[in-house]
């Protein structure tokens, strides 16, 4: 019976000598110096923060144009009046980007895996996949939406939907799948070749190796860029407005034009901030949890 190996607390020395603590600190580096400096450091940090931001605020408040800016961008009456309506319309944006994201994540993975296929017989597929990503990253998103949203119904083909919602989601899915496919591809390529070798050595087929070993690791490695693209998609959901469909941004524009006031846009910006920040923290948490596992196991 073999005795147990080294104790679990034993830190691993990677070849090259770099040191990885078992629970890597992926937290914010902004406050890191504070922890090092102690109480005095904290006082200085607080003081300098108050001074700098205080100066900024003072400068803004006392600029000559401030009263007009305040009225045009931060009008409380317009704000409260528009917030409810914009939030109601925002539900449409949510529908668009949630549905689109689901399809994007799937389609992009298919494209990325297709591009990674080896073997000469797959050449036409690889060419198609590469051409797809080139094309849809090249054409501006708004153009794609216009082309599909106005062009498809204009063809007057029986059975082709006329719905703005449908074509906007289709356009967004096509465009964003091109970007996300490249993100996946980077993730796939970042998985160490020995992982593939280990899986193939067990006798797993290429397909199963992809499915069980490569893709799960690849996706975990690219969560931050995936979130980036999702945030971009959330904002681009507003582009459906060019088709005449009233979503949150268009609603803000309508109220803004009616009142000759920009405050509705500030309200919308706040809504976006409120949803985006938790998403970012959630992904940070996911990444921190997986980083530990994925990074600590490299060299043996």
């Amino acid at each position: 019976m073999i005795g147990g190996g080294g104790s679990p607390e034993k830190y691993q020395t990677l070849p090259g000598g770099s040191y990885t603590p078992p629970n890597g600190d992926r937290g914010s580096k902004i406050l890191a110096p504070l922890k090092a400096e102690g109480a005095r450091g904290v006082t200085i940090a607080v003081a300098s923060t108050v001074v700098v931001f205080g100066l900024l605020v003072f400068a803004i408040l006392n600029s000559s144009g401030w009263p007009q800016i305040k009225e045009a961008f931060f009008d409380p009456e317009v704000f409260w009046d528009s917030l409810g309506k914009i939030m109601a319309r925002f539900g449409r944006n949510v529908f668009i980007f949630v549905v689109a994201e689901v399809f994007v994540l799937i389609l992009a993975l298919i494209i990325a895996v297709t591009r990674s296929l080896r073997g000469p017989v797959f050449t036409p597929l690889r060419i198609l996949a590469a051409a797809y990503t080139d094309l849809f990253r090249a054409v501006p998103t708004i153009l794609v939406i216009l082309l599909f949203g106005f062009g498809a119904p204009a063809l007057q083909i029986k059975g082709v939907p006329h719905s703005d919602l449908f074509w906007a989601i289709v356009a967004l899915v096509l465009v964003y799948s091109a970007y996300v496919a490249e993100v996946y591809r980077a993730g796939i390529q970042s998985v160490h070749p020995s992982q593939v070798a280990s899986a193939r050595a067990l006798g797993l087929s290429r397909g199963k190796t992809m499915r069980f070993v490569v893709v799960p690791q690849a996706v975990r490695r690219v969560l931050p860029p995936l979130l980036n693209d999702f945030i971009g998609l959330q904002k681009d959901s507003a582009l459906i407005a060019v088709l005449g469909y009233t979503e949150a941004l268009r609603e803000a524009q309508i109220i803004s034009a009616a009142n000759f006031d920009f405050t509705p846009f500030v309200a919308l910006a706040l809504i976006y901030i409120v949803i985006t920040i938790p998403e970012a923290r959630f992904v940070d948490w996911l990444v921190a949890r997986d980083q530990r596992r994925l990074q600590a196991v490299g060299g043996v």
Binding site: F150, P153, A154, Q156, H162, D164, A241, V242, L243, G244, Y245, T246, R250, I254
Partner: peptide
């Protein structure tokens, strides 16, 4: 039905000719 709101009239006209509005 919700009204369709356009950035410019050319797009409104296109939708009209398509039968979407």
């Amino acid at each position: 039905q919700d009204p369709a709101v356009y950035d410019d009239l050319a797009q409104a006209v296109t939708d009209l000719q398509n039968g979407d509005i």
